[in-house]
């Protein structure tokens, strides 16, 4: 990759050990986050996207465990860091915001107390300086009358306001990377628009890199520069956002796009992906998507494809794009005409 990257995740593996069984939630995930850009990680429930995000900050709880791989942040492998070193990264150089603003703030401390905490840990700011900075941060994230908000408790704020407080908290120490795990999923659409816009403005202002975890392809199209599509613990496609929507390569990505009811155009019929996501203990040996894929051949069912380069910055994990492909050589995975004809 030509661009400067801030984070390189290589072959990350995170498993959960339940009753002697290993469930590979993240199974060899690889992606890069270019500096100052937004990488979207998109996938459905159980794809491992949130676990990947939590793994970056090593916030995986027992019975989960990171079992392998590298997480290189500015050249250093975070997985080699001890607990103390990792704590200095969290909330400082890498911050995180979560899906549920209603439950992600501690109910028994004021907004000010919670904002000051990171400032005290990483910047050594005392109560007064911390409060000043907290007011400044609340103003930055667009909270009206910030000075009176610092003494309020989370339950006194709406969902949108709480998510703004979470963002303010994440930005307290000018992080270089922000990991946002479904930050707007629990919010109403007009509030979602406000929050996404806020993140974009803040990114421009601070040249921050963002990892945006989401299941919403609309959010991806709107906020991301690059996208990694995940399915069953693996990245199946990586591309810049324009290529991904114009020329999706993996049959799963295509399936997602065809399943999506659109608010910006009329569609006669949705084309769902058939079947369901396999249960963790019934993972197919070949391509994870093969049982649901309309193009799958014997090869797909038997052997797992690798994530291969198919362009400058594009990768796909699918036999169709390899020399070994044993199906129809003229296969058309995506036919955009079928989608836009009724626009």
């Amino acid at each position: 990759m030509s661009q400067e990257t801030i984070l390189e995740v290589n072959d990350l593996r995170t498993s959960f050990f339940v009753e002697g069984n290993e469930v590979k939630a993240v199974d060899g995930v690889t992606f890069d986050v270019p500096k100052g850009k937004t990488l979207g990680i998109v996938g459905e429930s159980g794809s491992g996207k949130s676990i990947s995000a939590l793994s970056i900050l090593q916030l995986i709880d027992s019975p989960g465990e990171i079992v392998g791989g590298e997480i290189n942040f500015k050249g250093d492998n975070l997985l080699k860091y001890n607990d103390n070193q990792m704590r200095k990264i969290r909330g400082n150089q890498i911050s995180m915001i979560f899906q549920e603003p209603m439950t992600s703030l501690n109910p028994v401390y004021t907004v000010g107390q919670q904002l000051r905490e990171a400032l005290k840990i990483h910047r050594g700011l005392g109560k007064e300086a911390g409060t000043e900075k907290a007011v400044e941060l609340l103003e930055l994230v667009g909270i009206p009358s910030p000075r009176s908000r610092v003494t309020q408790y989370p339950f006194e704020l709406s969902g949108g306001m709480r998510q703004r407080v979470m963002i303010a908290m994440a930005l307290a120490c000018d992080p270089e990377l922000l990991v946002a795990d479904e930050p707007t999923t629990a919010l109403d659409v007009t509030i979602q628009a406000q929050i996404l816009e806020l993140l974009k403005e803040l990114q421009d202002e601070f040249n921050m890199s963002i990892i945006m975890i989401t299941h919403d392809l609309g959010v991806v199209a709107e906020t991301c520069d690059y996208v990694a599509v995940m399915y069953c613990g693996k990245v199946v496609e990586y591309a810049d956002v324009h290529t991904l929507f114009k020329n999706p390569r993996h049959p799963y990505t295509v399936g997602l796009l065809n399943s999506l009811p659109r608010s910006d155009m009329d569609q006669e019929e949705l084309e769902p992906i058939r079947g369901t996501v396999p249960a963790p203990h019934e993972m197919p040996v070949g391509c994870r998507f093969a049982p649901r894929c309309p193009f799958a051949t014997d090869l797909c069912h038997e052997k797992l494809p690798e994530l291969e380069d198919v362009g400058d910055e594009e990768q796909v994990r699918c036999w169709i794009y390899t020399d070994e492909w044993d199906g129809d050589p003229e296969v058309k995975v995506y036919e955009p005409e079928a989608r836009t004809a009724k626009d």
Binding site: L59, R87, R90, S95, E100, T103, S104, E117, M166
Partner: peptide
């Protein structure tokens, strides 16, 4: 300990001991 706000505190870089006794 399994609540979201404990995870938030960890993501801020708060020490384990402080998380337990304060949060």
């Amino acid at each position: 300990i399994s609540q979201d706000y404990i995870r938030t505190a960890r993501a801020k870089g708060v020490k384990r001991r402080v998380i337990i006794y304060k949060h």
